[in-house]
């Protein structure tokens, strides 16, 4: 990345309140095109809230979010427009249970991007192929294992050709033996140049694929650093405790 290229995402002074509680207490963050960011931090630190604000699922209370220079704002009506170019993968998969795997992948491209049936179908199969699950296309999601469902969810998001992918703890609802198949897909995605924000406690993934690790606590970013530095010299006791906690189990 050259210095002059504007970041894909620019966040300034972002705040989000739930009643009196400040879930986000002033976030400043730039994400460059093609960057792989890992966000971690203790439970309740506001990681999910940040992800929900970044694609406008939750309106923010103060501060600015610029996606490719365009302000993301419910009032300006840009949130809906920008959201379709931001993919989101949830902890609980959130596949549509009444639709087949294939239909899960074609629904939004057809309704939102107005693709024809064949083009949507082609794109869906391409992405299901990419996550290694094309042979299950005709099944209902509840017939698949957790790992398979999460891979379908990734394929579903990719079908919208997003410029940014958000992952909110994509592996923490999975049985241990299925974590790897999802992480492998995410690593492949990272290597392909996709801009990614991954909320995860998988530090192995962070080491392997992240350009930068962001550590959050109580609605603030208290440290950002490349993996080497982050894991190398850890001054802050909160981060030390966090790392000790997650490695302990």
């Amino acid at each position: 990345m050259t210095e002059q290229a504007p970041p894909l995402v620019r966040v300034r002074g972002l705040e989000k309140r739930f009643g009196d509680y400040r879930a986000l207490a002033g976030i400043d963050l730039d994400i460059a095109r093609g960057e792989r960011l890992v966000v971690c931090g203790p439970s309740g630190s506001g990681k999910s809230t940040l992800a929900y604000c970044l694609n406008g699922l939750e309106p923010h209370d103060a501060g600015r979010i610029l996606i490719d220079g365009m302000p993301l704002d419910e009032e300006l009506g840009t949130a809906h427009e920008l959201r379709r170019s931001i993919g989101m993968v949830f902890q609980s998969f959130n596949l549509f249970p009444h639709l087949s795997v294939l239909e899960n992948c074609t629904l939004a491209p057809r309704l939102v991007l107005r693709l024809g049936e064949q083009e949507a179908h082609r794109r869906a199969m391409e992405n299901l192929e990419r996550v290694g699950i094309a042979d299950q296309a005709a099944k209902r999601p509840d017939r698949l294992s957790g790992g398979q469902q999460q891979r379908v969810a990734i394929a579903r998001a990719l079908c919208m050709r997003p410029r940014l992918m958000l992952f909110d703890e994509p592996t923490s609802a999975l049985d241990p033996e299925m974590v790897k198949e999802v992480l492998d897909v995410m690593i492949e995605l990272a290597q392909s140049g996709m801009t990614m924000v991954c909320i995860t406690h998988e530090m192995g993934f962070a080491r392997a694929a992240a350009d930068r690790i962001v550590f959050m606590d109580q609605g603030r970013i208290i440290r950002e650093a490349p993996p080497k530095t982050f894991f190398g010299d850890q001054q802050d006791p909160r981060i030390r405790r966090f790392l000790a906690d997650i490695t302990a189990g």
Binding site: N55, L57, H80, L107, V112, A157
Partner: peptide, 21 residues
Amino acid sequence: PRGQYAAAKAMGLSYWQSMTR
């Protein structure tokens, strides 16, 4: 589940599209 609304919205579906589909 709330996640269904969130997923539909995150895919860019409008209110009516997420309701009807």
